[in-house]
Design a binder for these strands. Sequence first.
DNA 1: ACGCTCACG
DNA 2: GACGTACGTGAGCGTA
Length: 959
Amino acid sequence: MGWHYAFGRASLQSNSVWGSLQMDTKFGKGCHLHLIDGSAFIFRAYHALPPLTRKSDGLPVGAVSGFCNMLQRYVEGNNGADAATHVAVIFDKGSHTFRNDLYDLYKANREAMPEDLRPQIPLTRKATEAFNIACKELEGFEADDIIATLSCMAREAGGRVTIVSSDKDLMQLVGDGVEMLDPMKNKRIDRDGVIEKFGVGPERVVDVQALAGDSVDNVPGAPGIGIKTAALLINEYGDLESLLDRAGEIKQPKRRETLIEKRAQIEMSKRLVQLDCDMDLDFTLEDLEVRDPEPDVLLGFLSEMEFRTITQRIAAKLGTEPPVIAEPAAEAAADEVEAVPFDADKYECVSDASALQVWIDRIVQAGYVAVDTETTSLDEMRADIVGISLCVEPGQACYIPIAHKASRGDDLFGSDDLAEGQMDRDEVLGMLRPLLEDPSVLKIGQNMKYDAKIFALLGVDVAPIDDTMLMSYAMHGGLHNHGMDGLSERYLSHKPIEIKSLLGTGKAAVTFDRVPVDDAVKYAAEDADITLRLWQAFKPKLHRVGVTTVYETLERPLVPVLARMEMAGIKVDRDTLSRMSNAFAQKMAGLEAEIHELAGRSFNVGSPKQLGEIMFDEMGLTLPDGKKPSTGKTGAYSTGADVLEDLATIHDLPRRILDWRQLSKLKSTYTDALQEHINPDTGRVHTSYSIAGANTGRLASTDPNLQNIPVRSEEGRRIREAFVADDGKVLVSLDYSQIELRILAHVAGIPALKQAFVDGVDIHAMTASEMFDVPLDEMTPEVRRQAKAINFGVIYGISGFGLARNLRIPRDQAQGFIDRYFERFPGIRAYMDDTVAFAKEHGYVQTLFGRKIHTPEINSKGPTAGFAKRAAINAPIQGTAADVIRRAMTRMDTAIERIPARMLLQVHDELLFEVDAEAADDLIEVARNVMEGAADPAVKLDVHLAVDGGQGATWAEAH
DNA sequence: ACGCTCACG
DNA sequence: GACGTACGTGAGCGTA
């Protein structure tokens, strides 16, 4: 039973003049054109299959394999009366289309393409060609437009068309001999099918889409109108134009208002969804005629991809012998990888161009490389590069010294001359640049943000990347830290050379350029070696743990975004800080004198120990509740703000201390320390964000911390006046309003809470009203304050004790509040119980986006159990909010590119931008849209995410 | 090195 | 019945 390739066979059967058709027949009556939506095939293949890699070299090929299977299945099914005489697979090309010019947020919600899919795209083109099927695309156009143009052409020529796709946008093309075929359900969709889906005929589908919008592609449409309503309106008024012209006649007030007010937006939506039937194509329908595949070409491609099963199947059907696919010694090699011992003596020192070229060739061959840079400072903005290490295979790594100083035995401080045997920096960079920027070579690093910044400042844009620190964070969040040394010991059982042993510690520490080259080779090359080994261990584990999407959408894409933000920095006015510092110093001196006077003697006001002894032992102050003053671990009296606040009711001293402490904090941490952080070259402050620091997925800001600049007190808020926009620009601040409570409303499913956000009422007042049966218009600030504390308490894993302390009320009263709250919102209790139960069973909790936060102490006994429980309750909420803003940030750069604007800072629920003054309003609109839509399309929140915005010359004004 | 205190969300 | 407690961070200072 010989197998004929379905196209050939079908054509021969259904059309006896197959041969002549192939020669010169014009496309026309009797012809049947199949148009396959290639991108849809690819994505379906990608998501349907596990992440397979080519055995010989690890190239990701899962999607290609699925794509080939789908093509083969399609081809086999293509026979009988409906068989195609002409066929093409159509692809999208380029991310920017005319629709982006119409509306810059078009498809802005789209997830970035997964890293392991990107290299497979060109391979799917090759696969199509290997099947000998026409493969068409056009820069700047979506596949849908090409499909539209071709079906119009085919229809006009009198032929039939089948569009193989399930994309509902293509339904507008159906009719007059054009049908769709959903390849998964194997269901044909004709005119009736379209009416079933859209409620209108194909010719009016665009009108319905224009009204209903599309959250996936970010087509706005008319708010509040879905497909059902849209179809109703179109059927009543005939078409969109008539509807909009006669919108005033609509009875429902809300609907009428929307259609009148949003007319422009609706008309733009129509232009976005309207397919272009009139493109200029550089090929004809005749070019799409079906052709039998060349067995050699097809089998050659399949065997090159190392698809054993498909190759054999197709070879059998073609009646040929399948080509032999070499079985690499993969298993044996993999075991050996584990066994390769660390040997610092095997690392190579690269000191000339020919040696470097050998490494570059190896890396290009491999398609990946572990990279590490050595510099003179942990602050990238002040660091000079000293050397680069590379590794492509465990145990085989090199170090390229660039700027090591010559060391001389008789000179304690070393010399300023460069050591011998080093390549010129620019020569090294010139050779490495093509590699580091090569889209087909993956650069692997541990904390790549650091190295990417070092390279970026030297004019090299490193991409694409993988980051072992972030892989670990995605897999092991909550279990341990993700520093390289720890990971190496834990996962490779190897203790790396400590940097201390090369640089020394404390005052005597030297910079890396003072390290002798021989020592540097051992240390630096080992780091690259470790990084590569960690990557090999983590890459497959990422899938097993089920956090590939988390890593690819929430962690890795943040690296270039944060690198840009950190390099941009924010302008800080030194004079403002300096003036404030002097003012604080004066006030503090005055307070200090008063404090000593009140205390009866002089002491260090900054010492809690001395203060405690003075207040409680010498002066004999007693707490209002009559309790003994509490002590900490060291036995010293506790003198925290809450204690002093209580004591302030009986004596003047504690208030003075509180005032002094506030000023001291502002002066030392902000007005003084911040000045030290102004970069002399840029005049700006460049913080560093740690992506893998906080357990919940939040970022953390260090050196300096710009996420805790004062704002709550009037005095402190003035610090923000020193954060200014550059000349001619303004700062724009956008922050999520009550994002954690909104997420709580969603995850716990609290109808009253959700409704409150829909109605836009004061959420704390609403809570108070529900709990205390007080009507909203009779709400007092005090009752509202208590409800607010409870709302926050819930997010933190409330306890009677904690609430009592926070509100300074008796514990039983606080417990009463909590009981009442749970009575009114029983879903909250259920959420808390379920979350803790989940944590106990699985050892982790999860955010809505799949981030896992491990809770290793959840099953412990004693007080730690309480901590672990509350942390488990809080983590999904805080973590989901963190995921949301991460998603917003990864999409923000491209969204605001054209304005142009720069994102400078992230403060958990706030993003701060710098933009030309006249473009500020534009930015606010665009950035707000990105932020409000950041959960889409991965998660459909029941609650709208609202974003407040402001602008001004300083951060104080913008916030 | 560690604890205390306090700045932020 | 008693533990002990709001969640998540980072920095500066004093004390050991």
